[in-house]
Design a protein around this nucleic acid. Structure first.
Ligand SMILES: [Mn+2]
Ligand SMILES: [Mn+2]
Ligand SMILES: [Zn+2]
Ligand SMILES: [Zn+2]
Lengths: 157, 157
DNA sequence: TTATAATTAGTAATCGTTACGAATTAAGCA
DNA sequence: TGCTTAATTCGTAACGATTACTAATTATAA
């Protein structure tokens, strides 16, 4: 399904309207789904398609998207909040690999935590509703060659 | 080994001194190892043992402890950075269970990610140096009874 | 001692975020 | 259609956690 239509329906389901401003912001996120944009970055990017949009609207819309579990607010330790599309069904938050050498950030969409969450349910009586798993480390290629900023590099900051 | 002596040696190993101010701050962290204190909370607590200690020194010392991998700077989404003792050898960052109902935070010291990290090495050529794993969910006891603030509750904020 | 470096204290400045009032737009209804 | 009310947006002021900076203090070394 067209992701904009899909998101529009999720807005409607909670009695929210997908205003032109909100749609412009959502499109920026979809057009940069590999990135993890900050508020300021979204603000800059959305200005090209909607020049008069205000910064406060970006803050409010991203907060709303969090509430709807469409995006996840993340902190990568660089002093600004970053926003990450959760993906199709929003059920499971994807995992991250972050390279110490070049800052590249790779996503693992597959859910690697299912077994552990079963164990938490059984041994701890804890029912998991969400999770966050990030790995920091070094790609062997980066260790050997140094990262030369290949085109698939998605540095966080 | 006495944890203060241990930490003192780690300071010395990197040519840092464990000044009285730094020691007072480290003791606050050790005396509250179950908590995840913010800078302001450390500042308040350390004032009882060292009334003249300045806020900037708390910031600087916690930053230094991060650099030495003695503590981990964490963001639980409540607007302030919180600091978490990594534990004995600092090698592995422990995991968290956070209850949606009562905010209780439980730590899992055991490393549940070893197998996944082997897989990352082999399938992704990615050598993990650190990780972060937090689960959000609900304790069955909290779901049934509501959390009545039992004595072992360690709410984050 | 005297010079040099490290550390601390206090506070001003910074900057991401939040709060707020006025203006605009949409929805509901006669 | 007009009128009323609610939702949304805009611009900006206020907030507050963090950082930066200077002077004072303390340790280290010649
Ligand atoms: Mn991501
Ligand atoms: Mn912890
Ligand atoms: Zn790399
Ligand atoms: Zn609970």
């Amino acid at each position: 399904m067209n992701p904009i239509v899909n998101i529009s329906q999720q807005f409607a389901a909670q009695n929210y309207k997908l205003t032109p401003q909100r749609e412009a912001i959502v499109k920026v996120l979809l057009d940069n789904e590999k990135d993890h944009l900050s508020v300021e970055e979204v603000y800059m990017l959305v200005k090209t398609s909607y020049p008069h949009l205000g910064l406060a609207t970006v803050y409010r819309t991203l907060e709303l998207l969090c509430e709807l579990h469409i995006v996840e607010k993340m902190d990568f330790g660089d002093g600004v909040a970053r926003y990450d599309l959760r993906g199709d069904d929003h059920a499971h938050m994807h995992h991250h690999l972050i390279c110490n050498v070049c800052g590249r950030l790779e996503e693992i969409k597959e859910d690697w935590l299912h077994d552990l969450e079963l164990r938490l349910e059984q041994e701890y009586g804890f029912n998991v509703t969400d999770h966050r798993l990030d790995f920091k480390g070094t790609y062997n290629t980066c260790k050997r060659n140094g990262c030369k900023g290949e085109k698939d590099c998605q540095a966080v900051s």
